[in-house]
Nucleic acid binder design. Structure first.
Lengths: 181, 181
DNA sequence: ACGCTTATTGAGCGACCCCTCAAGTTTTGA
DNA sequence: TCAAAACTTGAGGGGTCGCTCAATAAGCGT
């Protein structure tokens, strides 16, 4: 037997409640009690559908990242400009969720092995997509050099995102656009 | 009346214990109980000398950052290469403390106003030192443009540091050295 | 040597957190 | 229709954490 309709609805309510809370109150404010209050369920129901609070948070973050993917099917038609654009879109369009991702990556990535591995793997995939796009644009380039340049480009994007997520005054999309050549 | 010799010694033992714990067990492992255990004191003594646990942690981080300053007296003789070198020295020489700084900046900077303001102010001071050094090297440059370039340079350094603090495999000093032109 | 200040201790407060589980209710598919 | 599976609830377990405070001890200037 699979999942009941009731369970599917509840699951969606939990996800919506989690997303809203993350945006409104940040990671600290997104406690299990707060999620359950907003979803109008009891903690037991939550744990009937998720293994841990962390799972729900990570799901919300993943959905938000996937939502801006310029090439969801991974056909290989995206350009570096597309990928930078998607990055900008995520940070400026979903700043609250981007903040959560940053917090999860920093906190979990430092002390939680599974989280750490997922963050590294995510970075690796992103690095490869950027590099492949750069090599499609100029197949004669030295792959070694392109990889290094891509690593630096991504670092700059992360640094600028970091800066703008801490300081609302900072013009992220303007500065990041400078990187599209 | 001032502080007793005994208090000064205890204060130093607390600082040493905090620094050692931050390096060994990270921010999460650096609980008040752990600090007090290692310093061989009771919690009450800690609070006779510090207002909060956070104060001790921030003090340790500040000391480590100040220790690599290429121009502690702020005379204005440091070059951009010096400043990048100091950044590299901090990240590669004190990776554990650099991790703590990153965590404090991300966590506190998101939800704690005083911490947020300190992080922003610290960035601002660093930005100005890098920019002033760049302008000393080339006084004819457009200050507006130099400021933007400096902001991007700092973002890249932060991004590379972020990368290497999460991934021990990453060659931070090699990649960051590419930025010195 | 004395009195004021500082230091230290032991005991414990109170808040918050994630999560569990037995017991009932609803949904589902055959 | 009916039993098995899925769902929901209410109550609460178990733990960590930062921090406080009255009482006692030690240090210090005069």
């Amino acid at each position: 037997m699979g999942r009941n309709q009731s369970g599917i609805r509840t699951r969606q309510r939990i996800i919506d409640a989690t997303r809203a809370l993350l945006a409104e109150s940040g990671l600290d404010g997104t406690t299990l009690a707060a999620i359950c209050d907003r979803a109008e369920i009891r903690a037991g129901s939550f744990y009937n559908l998720f293994d841990s609070k962390e799972d729900a948070v990570l799901l919300v973050v993943r959905e938000a990242i996937d939502a801006v993917d310029p090439d969801p099917a991974h056909v290989g038609t995206d350009t570096v400009a597309d990928l930078i654009g998607a990055y900008i879109k995520f940070v400026t369009g979903e700043p609250a969720i981007a903040r959560i991702y940053l917090q999860v990556a920093v906190n979990g990535g430092m002390s939680d092995k599974p989280i750490h591995d997922r963050v590294i793997a995510h970075h690796q995939r992103r690095l490869e997509r950027f590099r492949d796009a750069a090599l499609r644009a100029d197949p004669t380039a030295d792959p070694e050099r392109v990889t290094l340049d891509t690593e630096i480009l991504l670092a700059t994007l992360h640094g600028l995102a970091f800066r703008s997520l801490l300081d609302d005054e900072f013009d992220f999309s303007g500065t990041a656009s400078e990187l599209i050549t």
